[in-house]
């Protein structure tokens, strides 16, 4: 059983894989278009980190590029700019994913928070976002929020993966 989870293959969970990205993109767009919540980290990026640390035989760089393009389109930013940031953070995750997988959940959350911090710093330099009033604090709060969201996301996706693989 353990061996099967460790050697997770896309064809075992293809629907979950695609639906999780779709759901994450919808939620991220919802935060922008319907709720105007600015301190939520991108669930899509967290989902990408999750699959990068679970599906080990793929680099996920193509997924990162395509998801980045989707965000460039949704946020009206220059095409390729989000892709660049998604690719960089995914590459950081790729470099340490085997060790990352072995860490306890709290430690994983802190690492995810640091990746999100890299994401925000890169966004800061590339987009020079207009941060007035509370927007400044919300912007730098995102890595902290990601630390709290990661355990929940991992729990949900782990459970769904388990159900999909063994049912």
């Amino acid at each position: 059983m353990t061996e099967k989870v460790f050697s997770l293959h896309i064809h075992d969970i293809k629907w979950l894989f695609f639906l999780s990205y779709l759901f994450a993109i919808v939620i991220d767009n919802m935060m922008i278009l319907s709720f105007d919540i600015q301190f939520m980290p991108y669930l899509t990026l967290l989902t990408l980190f999750f699959w990068t640390s679970r599906i080990l035989y793929k680099s996920h760089l193509l997924s990162a590029f395509i998801l980045g393009l989707a965000f460039d389109t949704a946020l009206n930013t220059p095409l390729g700019s989000h892709s660049l940031i998604f690719l960089t953070t995914t590459f950081l995750m790729l470099r340490s994913r085997l060790r990352f997988k072995g860490y306890p959940l709290w430690q994983q959350s802190v690492i995810i928070g640091s990746y999100l911090l890299v994401f925000q710093i890169m966004s800061w330099f590339i987009f020079t976002p207009q941060l007035l009033g509370n927007a400044y604090y919300y912007y730098w709060l995102e890595p902290l929020v990601a630390i709290f969201i990661w355990p929940l996301l991992t729990l949900i996706l782990n459970r769904l993966t388990h159900q999909t693989v063994f049912n």
């Binding site: 779709l22 993109i25 919808v26 939620i27 767009n29 919802m30 922008i32 278009l33 319907s34 709720f35 393009l69 989707a70 460039d72 389109t73 949704a74 220059p78 095409l79 390729g80």
Partner: peptide, 28 residues
Amino acid sequence: DHYTNALSNFRNLLTATIEPVERIAALP
């Protein structure tokens, strides 16, 4: 994309692709 309109058709194509997602996201 930043300095020219060379990729505007590609952007329009991408916008059309994610339009259903945006419609769902705007539902609430």
